[in-house]
Design a protein around this nucleic acid. Structure first.
Lengths: 119, 119
DNA sequence: TACACGTGTAAGAAAGTTCTTACACGTGAA
DNA sequence: TTCACGTGTAAGAACTTTCTTACACGTGTA
């Protein structure tokens, strides 16, 4: 993901911020920051349904904030562990302006389609 | 807003991240980072409808990312100028975990209401 | 075979976000 | 009075997000 030396593109930034702008996903990251865990146990720990957790984890992984790996347990079960990725992002007006300059999609991703996508 | 010495609460963080996780609002902040401007001109510069810009600016102001002020122009017009706020946020797994610990609303703000809001 | 545990996916509903269009009001100049 | 320019607000439509429930599959044990 994004370390102190690299800057995300505007599109990456939007993806990351959107992924983190949800209380449940924040809690997921926070729980994984305390140590990796597998999906169904994480669902129990956090107290949400497993399909829901899976969906949120996919969103976080797509943004590069967590990393999933499939492992075989000693009793033959395929278990999907997730751990938090190593990221370090800084947000200041100047940095946001630099990122905004690289946005490829400038319109909001929802609502009625606009007549003329502005750029 | 949030300088290098202060940490936002979990709720503030979610509000800020949600406000920034939109390409159009990123562009608004970026344009204002280059210098303050008034609403209708900003709408022209960016190329969006004024009511839409107004709505987005309100969202950014509520999150503390921009500051609006009403001024009287020399020809008697009440003009609403906006400028970017001074913020400096850092996002790392540890900082997110600390913020998540202070979340008061732990559920996502949309979708079907859950049976038992989990904490 | 039934059960326990793990996985991934799909469908449909509820809620919020984004956008356009319209309305209303104000000041000043022609 | 009309026009130009500024402001704020509301209504309704299109779209995305979030959630639950259900289905399907796998391995191992009793």
């Amino acid at each position: 993901m994004t370390g102190p030396g690299t800057s995300p593109t505007g599109d990456q930034l939007v993806e990351v911020l959107a992924a983190l702008s949800n209380p449940l996903r924040l809690r997921i990251v926070a729980t994984l920051a305390g140590g990796r865990d597998y999906v169904s146990n994480l669902a129990r720990v956090i107290g949400v349904s497993r399909p829901l957790l899976h969906m949120h984890l996919q969103r976080l992984e797509a943004a590069g904030l967590v990393v999933g790996s499939l492992e075989l347990s000693e009793d033959g079960k395929a278990m999907k562990y997730f751990e938090v990725a190593d990221f370090d992002l800084r947000l200041t007006p100047a940095l946001l302006a630099a990122a905004a300059a690289t946005l490829t999609t400038t319109d909001s991703p929802r609502g009625p389609a606009r007549e003329e996508p502005s750029r």
